[in-house]
Each structure stands twice: as C-alpha cells, then as structure tokens.
Design a binder for these strands. Sequence first.
DNA 1: ATTCCCTGAATGGCCATTCATTCATGTACT
DNA 2: AGTACATGAATGAATGGCCATTCAGGGAAT
Lengths: 200, 200
Amino acid sequence: MKVENKHTKIIAAATKVFAKKGFFTARISDIAKEAKVADGTIYLYFNNKYDILLSVFEEEVGKIVESTEKLLRLEDDPRRQLEIFCSQHLHSMKKNRYLAEVLQIELRQPYKLIKEYRDNTFSKYTGIIAEIIRNGQRLGLFRPELHPDLAKRCIFGALDELSRVWNASLETNYTVEEITNQVLAIFLIGLEVTRSSEEG
Amino acid sequence: MKVENKHTKIIAAATKVFAKKGFFTARISDIAKEAKVADGTIYLYFNNKYDILLSVFEEEVGKIVESTEKLLRLEDDPRRQLEIFCSQHLHSMKKNRYLAEVLQIELRQPYKLIKEYRDNTFSKYTGIIAEIIRNGQRLGLFRPELHPDLAKRCIFGALDELSRVWNASLETNYTVEEITNQVLAIFLIGLEVTRSSEEG
DNA sequence: ATTCCCTGAATGGCCATTCATTCATGTACT
DNA sequence: AGTACATGAATGAATGGCCATTCAGGGAAT
C-alpha cells in the first residue's frame, strides 16, 4: 500500500517533470522534489532514469489501451468504432496533459529501449486503427483502395498533433467533442463541400 | 568557399548524427568524426550544440518553405494547392530522410530555443495549410464548419506521421505519389465508400 | 534489537567547450 | 626564386561542470 503509493507518486511526478523539461534535461532531483521524496528513494522503486520513462509509458498508456479496447468490443460498426477511438484518445490526452506531452516528445526518440517499447507495445495501440479500417473495408463501408497502414498513420498523426492544441497558447478554446467531430468530419466525409451537401 | 564547404559539411553531418542518436546523446565528437573535422573546428562555425541544431532547422527547413511557397503561388485552386503542399512535403522528407527524423524528434522538445524556433518560424510553414483551407472556404469549395486551425493540425500531423513509413522496417514499399494520393483521398473525399461512389 | 524504509551527501564518469599549439598558405623583401 | 615572417584555420588534449547513481547511516515500527 505504502509502496504502491510511492511508486505511483513518482510516476506522476516524473510524467509532469518529463513533460515540462523533456527526458534529458529533467534531473532525478527534479522528480524527487516534485514527488516529495529523496533522490535515493527513486532508486528503491526504479532501476534507473530510463526505467522511469518506460514505466510511465507502460503503466499510463496501458490503462488507455485497455479501456479503449473494452469500449470497442461493444460496438460493431467500424464508423462508430473510429469515432470511439478518436474520442477516447482525445479525452485521455486532455485528461492527462502531461502524459500527452511525454508521449508526443519522448516516444519518438531513437533510443533502443524506447524504440523497443514503441515497436512491441505501442504499435498495438495504433494497430487498432488499421484493424478498424480493414474491418470497414471488409464490410464494404470504407473504400477498398486505401491502405490500412497508411490510413492508420494519417489518423493517428492527426490525433497526435491535434492533442497539442491544449498546450498551445492561442487555440485553447476547443472541447474534446468539437475536435472529435472535426476529425471525423474530415476523415469520414472529407474536406470538400460537395460531398457532404450531396448528403444533406 | 572553403568556409562555406565546411559549414555545410558540419550541418549535413549533424543532421545525420542527430537523426541516428537524437540530439542529447549525440556527441560533438560524433559530429566532428562524421564531418571529418576536429572537435574544435565545429566551434569555429557554431556557438554551441544548440546552435548546430537550430541551424539545421533554419537552413534546411528554410529551403523547403521557400520552394513550397513558390510553387503554391502558381496555383489558384485550393484543392490543387493542398495536393501540392502534401506532395512537396512528402517529397522533401523522403529526399532528406535524416532531416525528416530530426524534425519529427527534436522540433517537439520543450526547450526554450526550440520552442521559439517552432513558434516563430516553423509555424509559418504549417500556417500555409490553414491559409489554403480558409481560402477554399471563401471560395465555397471546403466545408465552412471546419476550423482551419484544427484541419491544419489534422493534415500536418498526418503528413508528419506518414513520412515515418520510410524509416519503419516493414511498410517501406510506398512511393511518394501513392502516399500523396492516399492522403488526398482520405482528406478530400473521406474514408467512406458511399461518398466517392456517388461521385463516379 | 532487528527489520525496513528512507535519506541526501559524496562519487565518478561523461562530454561540451576551451585554448595552446601546429600547419598551410600568402606576402614581402632581397 | 629563395628566405623570412605573418596570418588565421584547424587541431585535439585538457578542463570543468553537471548529474545519475550509490551507500553509509538515521529513525520508526514491531
């Protein structure tokens, strides 16, 4: 209990410090101060600095993946699934702003351990999108000439970049719902006015 | 002449080394070795390590922005302009893979100087997309309910993430044209099969 | 008194940056 | 055309600071 508390506290502190300073200029003593523990205490719970970062990834992202997958299982229509994925992702990123920043910044680093995490674990998360698209194609709902792996990148890249609006100074006034709607409007229906007006 | 050569050589070497190792674990001596100069020589051309990174941004990205803007001026139709922007961006990133990686990784770092560059200079580049969209809305070609600033992020995020396919191990077999077409298919026309088939 | 956390000062290694020195080239003088 | 001197680009070993990590000791709980 006590252990779980301190572990969690350090994870939260590290997420915040990494978000603000970036992994490499963040000092262990910054994290310790933020978590209100001694520098040495951190090494009772983590092997080294990288281990802290990887734990942030694994534990925090793990929660998101799990809850997203659970929600998706309740829905059959790929269009709705896409909506759920986008909405969930944006909600998570807004709720945990620091985690969002850490993911956006550090998940791309070309270091062995980070790459490994990205390729082995995180890619499953973005893979969900490709799966949805493949399924939509199978059902004849999505256009068959699209490559699911490219579409997946389009969508994930868009979500990733969009979740930065809450950190940017100016464009802070969007709600999650608004952004989700915009994403789906663009991806499902497209930019052009003719398509959607033919609809209505 | 000699000077220009060495400056350029160091920029190229740094781009490569930063791409492979990331800014923070890249050592000056790595860059020096790659550029085939002495460690000290680098300080005849740059003030410090950050200065090298910023120079990479400014000089290399500067070229891209300039040539993109020139091309866009020759075209009126926002749909075509969007196509040009996407195609140009992807072409540039494929041509200079190391630069692509450095941009994707380092441009997001939360350090003052990098932030400044991003907010003051780089944002002009992504701003081009928002401008195209605004223009398309004015002309009644793009849907008026879309926020140009959100759409801009969608599109840039998608392009950014897509240009990683050339670094990933598996999905390497796409051409720039193929990817451009996919992006436009998704953004302009949307994912759903009904919209595009109503068209044909 | 033993166990279990916890602490934070001290250690050691790494690397950006510096700078005394070398070397190549150019210029001037005979 | 050979000698002497000047310049400044280039070098790379040495310096110094920073910070992750360690560990000897403190103190609370049983």
